[in-house]
Amino acid sequence: MTAVDERSGRVGPSVGAARVVGQRLAPYLPILVAAALLALIPLRYRDSGSLMGVATEGMLFAAYAVAFNIIFGSTGQLFLCVGALAGVGGFASAIISDRVGLPLLVSIVLAALCSAAIGGLLSWVSVKRALDTIFIGIVTLAFSLSFQNFVLGRRDLTGGETGIFVEAGSDTLLHDRVSPYYVFLALVVGYLVLYRTLQRSRVGWAFRALRDDQLAAELSGVDVSRYRVFAGTLGSAMLGLAGALQAHSGRGFIGPSTYAFGDVDVRVLVMLAFGGIGTLLGPVIGAASLTWLDELLVDYAQLRLVLYGAVIVVLFLGFRRGIVPAITDYVRTRIRR
């Protein structure tokens, strides 16, 4: 039938099958390469508990950034509540497992569902009321700050300013020095595979259409509202899952600053803007670069906020699509010459 079949007939059927499998897997190759590179990091920093902690946090933020990329990058909904949605997951999972006493896995799943419900509701309301980007931003920011006030105010539930220690999960591999890194790496790889699969499916096609031109997409039969809500719900579930895993890993401590707007949303926004909004590996590259930069500037913690602000301004003035796409474009045009 096709050229592939003819050639495979000549050299044996297995090669053709391999080629077909290869073609199927080719789009996932960048993920594999990135995962392999990232898997090598613990070999170097295994001995230092604090550096492994930094690397693990970097992976967590990569997971946040991929999830936020699905909401903001794919459907243009400016959710300024990444930290709050992750926090809903984190606190819900901690409370369900420690206070109610359900098994760890069940509580994590329930927590992710909580985040999904809230994110989906925010998305549904903004779609129903046809809110502009700016109003989605304000509504989600209001939710973000309300959540933070709730965490600070309901001491009995969340420990207030002091936070709570999460008991559940302390006997699992999440509390080792090295293995939490691999848990979060697996999470990021899973999210990336999901992102790529979405991109290649009908859903991704609809995302691209509605991002390019909402009216045109609607006219050609794309149910814009449904895909927006879908992206909002899915992304929020991913944020909740990552936040819940964070609550049960490491020192098992979560407080108001773990999921604060200034600590999570700002960083995720910078990471995504740096890596490139709407790209596959952009969020991961952004997370890795910013984590590395943070570690370099660890003695100048005060300057960090100034630097973040400057990065946002420079990025959106000069490289609106992100540094990574700008560089790849440059390299590509060089190679073609």
Partner: peptide, 25 residues
């Protein structure tokens, strides 16, 4: 339109962080 609003918002957010960081520093 939408691009202007989003760009203005994000740039001002960045400027805000710069002033915030400067004051805290």
């Amino acid at each position: 339109g939408e691009t202007r609003i989003l760009l203005g918002l994000l740039l001002m957010l960045g400027v805000g962080f710069m002033i915030d960081g400067f004051l805290a520093w």
